[in-house]
Design a protein around this nucleic acid. Structure first.
Lengths: 350, 350
DNA sequence: TCAATATACTGAAACGTTACAGATTGCCAA
DNA sequence: TTGGCAATCTGTAACGTTTCAGTATATTGA
């Protein structure tokens, strides 16, 4: 039996992928010793350790993930759970890159776990947990009372949420301060003399819907402006729906002279609707919009813009999950991104 | 030994994840039989097979991926290799969803393997192949002579490319017919009386750069229009660079009265540059642009638009890779997407 | 000198799966 | 009755890793 192993390794040394057995054969040590030497275990002699690590590097040894996973249960996988229909487009791309950046020099792989509108959002989470497919999970579209967060908390699987929950439970998150965004947006519009403001909201039900609405309301009373209700659509609605509803709104007697918009694509539709109604951006109405890629100012220079950095969000979320996996306290892995100033492109900033 | 297994399964049946051993215990069969019964092996009795599968479904048995992978080498993973800086944004999101759609009811997982501008594009491929991390790979930004495709072909690992190669080697691909796109675009511009055309090209070096340039040139001579060179930028350049160069170009005595643009974001910059030069879209110049999300018509209704469906590309690529993995001939897994008609939004279609 | 102890290393077992090489049973032809 | 054979089923080993329970050797203290 021993002879056969030896033969195999001798013959295959140039061909097959090296394993601990290969290293053991080459160094003349036992498999156990090699395994421990590679992970700097204390009871291995300093010289042996160096020797093993040198040889390992020389022949390009890489631990077999299946072996590790089978033995230890550690998958070295982070799963990003995404809704295939409702995520903001640049969100997907940017958050993936943000996560990638952080896990690039770790053994972690990123798997994308999609779910569709028709499914229970809990489905993909259950799958991941039941099959033990990931060491950590990142979810988006977080709700105040989020069953996914509760579920994972109960099972003790590390995760981070994009957006906060309001369940009195502690878990890592990264969030953009949408309350502050709405406040700044309203203040800006008010400073330009706009007094009747409307809000194109985030998707109803998500936590940041509440943040945004509250910030909007708080600032309205602060500046003494009034709200023109516009709750028939949210940024989750189709471009066409937003456009149509906006045009309808703008043809009424009492119409807004300022908008706060929570997403760039929705802002395009908003502007189209406004122009459908024969009104002009910058003259009849102003808009403060969030964007995640730097394109909106090309669309209409009159737009007032606040940037949200999803790549940063991805990095922060990845850092949080990895932190939790490696034992940090969940409560210490929460971050809030403060909006930058409102940017204007066709006038001198005040 | 047998007793210990039994005990463990008895105690743990409610708690731990069921394995073949659990099923074997419950059905009173051997582990081997259970394994074969689940995969419809021929030498298993019809009733036994049904019984095993019923119990498996009842207790929600899921094969342990690490076990399968260790034993068979099969990872049940498809890797999507992406450049973290240069991919078109909607490409990332759409292609992921396209792939997801296809692998949704298979045991496959999708892992995203990123690489950065500074890296050799071959690096991530080498990593995947050397570590055996995926059963199939999808790559983008394909070049006429693509070292990645050659490498994977040599090692016999199934893959599909977004875009074609020109190495005389057969492999699965999905491509958009950019030659046809350029031809149709030029014809359209010519039909509107545009005679001096410029092309905002794809990234130099990618295969579809050639397709686009050739289509553009072919159609120019067909319609008897002339080309205004605009080779200082491509869609890979920054928005600001494209904008500046466009403005420079449009201020010259001899300037284009028509553009063909290979990407939506670049088109925004193009329009901005044109307007910087004091010219007006639809009057002084027309643009035919590709887009992958349906937003460009909101930007300027005068734009002429051709849609490219990246979600479809993702699905096709996934289908191709899976096909190759399951033994289909690589040559039968190639597809070309024909551009739809040029869409106009502010005039009646002709 | 001897036992105790620290140091450096090792084999066997186990994770869950599949492939290989049997084993058992029943049936049929000779 | 018996040998052969098909139909079903089974135990063992192996994939590469880590953990457990050691073993062998040198070192220390008395």
């Amino acid at each position: 039996m021993d002879r056969r192993n030896t033969e195999k390794n001798e013959e295959a040394s140039a061909q097959e992928r090296p394993t601990l057995k290969t290293l053991a054969f080459m160094t003349g040590l036992g498999v156990t010793t090699v395994s421990r030497a590679l992970k700097d275990a204390p009871e291995i002699g300093a010289e042996t350790r160096r020797r093993v690590q040198l040889v390992a590097k020389q022949i390009g040894y890489r631990p077999n993930r299946a072996g590790v996973r089978l033995r230890t249960g550690k998958t070295n996988v982070i799963s990003l759970v995404l809704n295939t229909e409702q995520e903001i487009m640049s969100f997907v791309s940017d958050i993936i890159y943000g996560v990638s950046e952080v896990i690039a020099d770790t053994p972690y792989h990123l798997i994308v776990t999609p779910y569709s509108r028709s499914q229970d959002p809990l489905d993909p989470i259950r799958y991941l947990v039941e099959t033990g497919s990931a060491d950590g999970v990142i979810i988006s579209r977080t709700q105040p009372n989020d069953p996914r967060a509760r579920y994972m908390l109960e099972r003790g699987i590390p995760f981070a949420t994009h957006g906060r929950t309001e369940m009195g439970l502690v878990h890592p998150y990264h969030d953009f301060d949408n309350h502050a965004f709405a406040v700044e947006a309203v203040r800006r519009l008010a400073s330009m003399g706009r007094r009747k403001l409307a809000l194109l909201t985030p998707p109803v039900g998500l936590t940041y819907y509440g943040h945004t609405v509250n910030g909007f309301a708080d600032a309205l009373s602060e500046v003494g402006a009034s709200e023109i209700p516009f709750s028939t659509v949210s940024i989750d609605h189709s471009i066409e729906q937003i456009r149509t509803r906006t045009a309808q709104l703008m043809r009424r007697d009492i119409r807004p002279d300022g908008f706060v918009s929570s997403a760039a694509a929705a802002t395009l539709a908003l502007v189209a609707g406004i122009e459908d109604a024969g009104l002009k951006l910058g003259r009849d109405v102003d808009i403060v919009s969030k964007q995640s890629s730097d394109l909106l100012h090309l669309f209409r220079p009159e737009l007032l813009i606040v940037n949200e950095n999803f790549r940063l969000a991805g990095s922060e979320l990845a850092r949080s999950v990895l932190g939790w996996i490696s034992g940090a306290a969940p409560g210490s892995l929460q971050s809030l991104s403060v909006p930058g100033e409102v940017l204007a492109y066709n006038r001198t900033p005040d």
